[in-house]
Amino acid sequence: MNKSRKLRRYLPLYLMALPCLIYIFCNNYLPMFGIIIAFKKLNFAKGIFGSPWNGFNNFKFLFTTQDAWVITRNTVLYNVVFIIVGMICSITVAILLNEIRSKTAGKFYQSAILIPHLMSWVIVSYIAYALLSNETGLINNSILKSMGKEVVNWYGEKRYWPFILVFVNQWKGIGFSTIVYLSSIVGISQDYYEAARIDGATKWQQIRYITLPLIKPTVITLLILSLGRIFNSDFGLFYQLPRNSGILYDVTNTIDVYVYNALMNNNDFAKSSAASVYQAVVGFVLVLTTNGIIRKVDRENALF
C-alpha cells in the first residue's frame, strides 16, 4: 500500500527522467561492451567477444617506458594546477562580469573572452607559433629585439613552458568556465545583496559572505567532476601547442601524448582502449573517494 502510494507520488518524476536515461543507456552503456577490447587480443574475424583474452597485456605499454613516472606526474600536477587556477580565475571573472551594469559592455566582454574557446588547438598552436617562433615570431622580432633584449628560443627552453601551458589553458578555457559560474551567480536572489547593503556590507564582504557560499555547491560539483579526469590531459594543449618539441618533453609530456606517440604508427584499438580504461579507473576511484569524503564532511554538497 505504502509502496504503491510512493510509486504514484514519484511516478511523474521517473517518467520525466526516463527519456534522458534511455538516451544515456543507448549512447553510453550499450557501447560499453567495447571496454572488453582492452582485455582482448583483438581479432575481428572472430568478433570482439570471440577474440582470445589477453589479460592485462594491452596495458603493458603504458609502463614499459622509463617516463611512466614523468608522464603521470605531469598529467596530475598540471591538472591540479589547472583546477585550482581555473577555479580562482573563472570565479573572479564571473564576479567581475556580474558587476558590470552596462549591458553592451557586459555582452562585449563575455563574447570576447569566449572567442578562444571557439578556436581549435591546431589554430591556437599556429597563433602561438606566430608569436613564439625564432625566425618570424612576433615576440622575438617585434618586441624583444626592439627593446634591445636577447631573443628567446621559446621552443627550446623548458622553464617557460609550465607557465605558457597554464596561461594558454586558462586563456582558452576561461570564457567557457566563467559562464558556468556566472549562471550560478546570477541565480542568486538580489534580496540577499539588498539586505547586506542595508547592513553596510562592503563589496568584498558581500562576495565573501554571500556570493562564495552560495556558489559553493557548484564549485564542489565541478571539483569532483574534474578530479574524475585527473589522468586525462588535453592532447591539443600538450602536443600541438609545444609543437612536439622534444626538448620540452620533461614538462610537456603527458599520458595522452605518450599514448599518441607510442601508437601513432599503429591504429591499435586494444592498446588505446587499455589506455582509456586505465585513465577512467583512476578517475573513478578519485571521484568515489572525494565524494565519500565530502559526504562525511558536508553531506548536503556531495554529488551522490
Binding site: N57, K60, F61, T64, T65, D67, N244, G246, Y249, N253, Y258, N261, A262, L263, M264, N265, N266, D268, K271
Partner: peptide
C-alpha cells in the same frame, strides 16, 4: 609490440 611502442615514443621525442 610494447617495447616498440615505447621506442616509438622515445623517437618521437628526440628525432
Amino acid at each position: 609490440a610494447d617495447q616498440i611502442a615505447a621506442i616509438n615514443a622515445v623517437e618521437a621525442q628526440y628525432l
